[in-house]
Design a binder for these strands. Structure first.
Length: 617
DNA sequence: AAAAAAC
């Protein structure tokens, strides 16, 4: 999904031939090219710069050096989709973009940033009366505990400068207003750059997308002109990023476009509910990184318009969702039964804010000698989210919501009304609540799986821009979506799983900003009493006495993520939970695994010290 | 039981 400012950026007029944006200003020179000599080529491997089209084997990659079998190529010649740029290129230095289509024939990439729309910035900030898009409030993430396990964990970095992503990407990072890496980025990026498989758990809104995108883009830049087969009409991406919802795939795509701007690395998105032909055309123009939802991906594979044979990087966002009951067979099919290289050959990275142990066990099938990383302490990010629970009878929910919204309207002093995201259990419930809000004077819209994709995208856009400051949503909007200015998340219907609750409330309090989450609880939510009370307590939230009473009576429930011995929320490496000396094959063939594999001593054995353990979120 | 994900 596009953010509102990105929307504007993409509305640069395009000429009829469709290839060259025609901005009103003349001859825009990208900032990173200003004051630059033509021969000022970036630090790229020599051969690639000299003969870009014919550099068959990548230097310095884990595939050429590590002894891992490289997929055999049935064909030689320039990589698919880049042939055009390899012809007739001037011999003088090559320029910044070795993968583009050459100086003259180069297609102008639409600027994905908001700093360059006909010279004016899009004023989301004014509309909401607070600065936005100024990057992440890093102070909110200082000093939070990190746990890693696995063999030879690469050390974290403190700055983007330490990880040499190249000048082009550095410029993109600056344009994203990222000043320094977030903790998940500090730890995950070196691990990923070292070629290691990774299972990473970090708080909602803490910068996971960049944490897996940066290494992928940088890796593909280093590889330079991997030769790709040409068989039938298939295209051969080098990286695959899967996510559980269409809107999330769009969002990741938009982010990845920013990170890869002017690198020549091509990012394409494919998802259902939208015309496939357009997506096929985009794919045919060349794809290095494919962002997709599972259904459409399988469709493309079955049509033989896509092959995973050349995949070097596989990333699953919201990985625990991707591997839960509904999705797991499809993911297994994609990863194990199509033509994707095996684990250990490709590099696999799994990211989420939650990682139930059972899902970790499943996930280990896809990983090889992986590092488990968890960043963030109980309550660190959720300190930013004030959580409230109110006892509201089913029949009172609507009027109670109305009261909240009225109060909010009166408090919302300047600018537009703060955005409120209301979660309900069912699609029908979403429609009916939306209708009710509208006829009661609250501009609302709704997003759920029974709406057309067009309606879904329109709803999200309308919400983001503040046109309809209330969005009623099912769990389709629970994960990953980054919607600035969501001040309030209302769990009108509580979910049945505490992890879903965590993801839902994580739609607010993002990038170091604060937020409010209100839940309506009643007798229908008894199974959530205990996990909710525990979660809130560990996040230093005020737990109402009545909820504590319900919790003490209630059985364990509301979670796939059984917390052993007294409610330790957390993403903890499930490999630690198995008896030492057993189950060593969970290391996926690492060979010399054992106790020494653990990079950081754990408080294994149940010693749970509140506040100093790993992320739950 | 619901939600999501292809046509």
């Amino acid at each position: 999904m596009r953010t509102s400012w990105a929307d504007s950026a993409s509305e640069i007029p395009v000429s009829d031939n469709g290839s060259t944006p025609r901005p009103t200003r003349s001859a825009y020179v990208p900032p990173h090219l200003r004051n630059r000599q033509a021969s000022d080529a970036p630090n790229l491997p020599g051969p690639a710069t000299e003969r870009p089209g014919f550099c068959g084997t990548a230097g310095g990659s884990r595939w050429s050096g590590g002894g891992a079998p490289k997929p055999e190529l049935g064909h030689s010649g320039p990589g698919y989709g880049y042939a055009g740029g390899l012809v007739g290129r001037g011999g003088s230095g090559g320029g910044w973009n070795n993968r583009s289509r050459g100086w003259d024939k180069r297609e102008r990439e639409v600027n994905p940033f908001d700093d360059d729309v006909d010279g004016k910035t899009v004023d989301v900030e004014q509309a909401f009366g607070e600065p936005e898009n100024t990057g992440i409030n890093f102070d909110a993430y200082e000093d939070i505990p990190v746990e890693t396990s696995g063999e030879n964990v690469p050390p974290p970095v403190n700055t983007f400068a330490e990880i040499d992503l190249g000048e082009v990407m550095n410029q993109n990072i600056r344009r994203c207003k990222y000043v320094k890496p977030t903790p998940i980025q500090r730890h995950a990026i070196p691990i990923a750059l070292a070629g290691r498989d990774l299972m990473a758990c970090a708080q909602t809104g803490s910068g996971k997308t960049a944490a897996f995108c940066f290494p992928i883009i940088s890796g593909i830049m280093r590889e330079q002109y991997v030769q790709r087969p040409r068989v039938g009409r298939a295209v051969y991406p080098l990286a695959l990023i899967l996510s559980p919802t269409r809107e999330l795939s769009c969002q990741i795509h938009d982010e990845a476009k920013k990170f890869s701007y002017q690198t020549g690395v091509k990012v394409v998105v494919a998802y259902g509910g939208a015309p496939i032909n357009q997506q096929l055309r985009e794919l045919e123009r060349g794809v290095d990184i494919l962002v997709a939802t599972p259904g459409r991906l399988v469709d493309l594979l079955e049509r033989a318009r896509l092959s995973l044979m050349m995949i070097r990087y596989l990333a699953l966002d919201e990985a625990d969702r991707m591997l839960d009951m509904g999705f797991e067979p499809q993911i297994r099919k994609i990863v194990e039964q199509m033509d994707m290289p095996n684990r250990g050959v490709r590099q696999t990275m799994l990211f989420s804010a939650t990682f139930p142990r059972e899902i970790q066990r499943l996930a280990s099938d896809f990983l090889s000698n992986y590092i488990f990383l968890t960043v963030g302490r109980v309550g660190s990010s959720t300190d930013l989210i004030v959580q409230r629970v109110e006892f509201v009878l089913e029949s009172d929910k609507r009027s109670h919501l109305m009261d909240l919204l009225h109060a909010q309207r009166e408090n919302g002093a300047h600018g537009k009304q703060a955005l409120t995201l209301v979660f309900v259990e069912t699609k029908k419930g979403a429609d009916s609540l939306e209708h009710w809000l509208c006829i009661n004077g609250f501009p609302a819209t709704t997003i759920h799986g029974d709406r057309t994709q067009q309606e879904r995208e329109l709803a999200l856009r309308s919400f983001k821009t503040g046109k309809t400051p209330i969005l009623v949503a099912t769990d389709v909007a629970a994960r990953g979506l980054d919607i600035p200015h969501v001040a309030h998340v209302v769990n009108f219907d509580l979910p049945n799983d505490i992890d879903d609750y965590v993801h839902r409330i994580g739609r607010t309090g993002r990038a170091g900003k604060s937020g409010l989450a209100t839940a309506f609880f009643n007798e229908g939510n008894l199974s959530m009493a205990r996990p909710l009370a525990e979660l809130m307590q560990e996040a230093n939230q005020e737990v109402p006495a009545w909820l504590t009473r319900y919790a003490s009576r209630a059985p364990y429930g509301g979670s796939k993520n059984r917390r052993s011995g007294g409610g330790r929320f957390g993403a903890r490496d499930f490999r630690r939970e198995s008896s030492f000396g057993k189950n060593l094959d969970y290391y996926g063939g690492g060979g010399n695994s054992g106790n020494a594999a653990y990079g950081v001593p754990s408080n294994y054995g149940g010693g749970y010290a509140p506040g100093v353990t790993s992320a739950w979120d």
